[in-house]
Amino acid sequence: MTEIINFIGNHQEIIFFIILSVFVGVEVIGGVPTVLHTPLMSGANAIHGVVIVGAIIVMLNADPGDYLALTLGFLAVVLGTLNVVGGFVVTDRMLEMFKKK
């Protein structure tokens, strides 16, 4: 129990950060018309591609001789890029169609 409480104390900045971000996320989406749900979901999908930053960090810190880590890291960067690039491009294609005729 003491450990948990201390953990919270030691990580308070990040915990405040998380709480506020949750509310920002909810607030930002509020009142969106149904029409835009699909593009919005797709856009949000692209944004969580930010996980690629983690994959890049793993790669940068990897030991150049550790081929298992390098292979997994390489794969992670490919997958993360797919998520980011594919996500943004497909969202753009959807939204392009909404422009005023």
Partner: peptide, 12 residues
């Protein structure tokens, strides 16, 4: 990025 999508996605 992660939390934003996590909370917005849940609401959606």
């Amino acid at each position: 990025g992660g939390i934003l999508v996590g909370s917005a996605g849940t609401l959606l």
